[in-house]
Amino acid sequence: MDCPIAFSLGRVGDWWSILILRDATHGITRFDQFQKSLGISTSSLSRRLGVSSRQAPCLSRASR
């Protein structure tokens, strides 16, 4: 990825969660949009969205 945030977080920890939050703040709301933007597998994205929705309720379906 060309994103400096992605590069930095790849060195220190779980960067998918931060990138998902980044995309959400840029208006991405659909699963397929996240997948296309991040270039992440379906299973990995599903798993990360499950964890992220517990950490950041704004990503859960119930809060929309």
Rank of each mutant, 00 (worst) to 15 (best):
I18T: 15
P4I: 10
G27T: 12
W15G: 05
S41G: 05
L49M: 12
I40D: 13
C3G: 06
Q55K: 14
M1S: 11
I18S: 15
P57I: 11
R64G: 07
R54L: 05
R22V: 10
A56S: 08
M1P: 07
F34I: 04
R48H: 02
S52L: 11
A24S: 14
S8Y: 14
W16E: 03
V51D: 01
S41A: 07
F34D: 10
F7S: 05
G39Q: 10
L19G: 02
H26S: 14
C58G: 07
S43Y: 00
A56W: 04
S46P: 00
I20V: 13
I28H: 13
T42K: 03
W16A: 14
L45I: 07
D2R: 06
K36I: 10
S46Q: 10
S44D: 07
I28R: 09
F7L: 09
A62P: 00
W15A: 07
G13R: 01
L45M: 08
P57K: 02
L9M: 15
R11W: 11
L21D: 08
S8Q: 08
Q35R: 15
L49E: 03
M1Q: 12
F31D: 04
R64M: 03
P57T: 09
T25H: 10
L49T: 02
P57D: 09
S46H: 02
S46V: 10
R22Y: 05
T42E: 08
D14M: 00
L9W: 15
I28K: 08
G50A: 15
Q55N: 04
L19M: 13
L38D: 00
R30Q: 11
F31P: 01
V51N: 06
I18R: 05
L45N: 05
F7T: 07
S63F: 09
A6M: 15
L21S: 10
P57H: 06
A24L: 08
D23L: 02
A56G: 00
L19Q: 03
L19E: 00
G27M: 15
P4E: 10
F7A: 00
S53L: 02
S43V: 05
V12K: 08
S17A: 12
S46E: 11
G50V: 07
W16V: 08
Q33T: 07
Q35N: 09
T29F: 08
R22G: 11
S60Y: 06
S43E: 11
G10V: 09
T29Q: 15
R11V: 14
L21Q: 06
F7Y: 07
R30K: 13
R61N: 03
S52V: 01
L38Q: 05
M1R: 04
G27Q: 09
L21C: 13
R48K: 10
G10F: 06
A56L: 04
L49V: 00
I40M: 04
D32R: 12
R22S: 12
Q55I: 10
R54Y: 00
R61S: 09
A62G: 05
S17W: 01
F31A: 04
S60F: 01
I28Q: 08
R48W: 00
A6L: 11
R48T: 03
I5W: 03
S53Y: 01
A62W: 06
D32E: 15
T29Y: 07
A62R: 09
S52M: 07
P57A: 11
S53W: 01
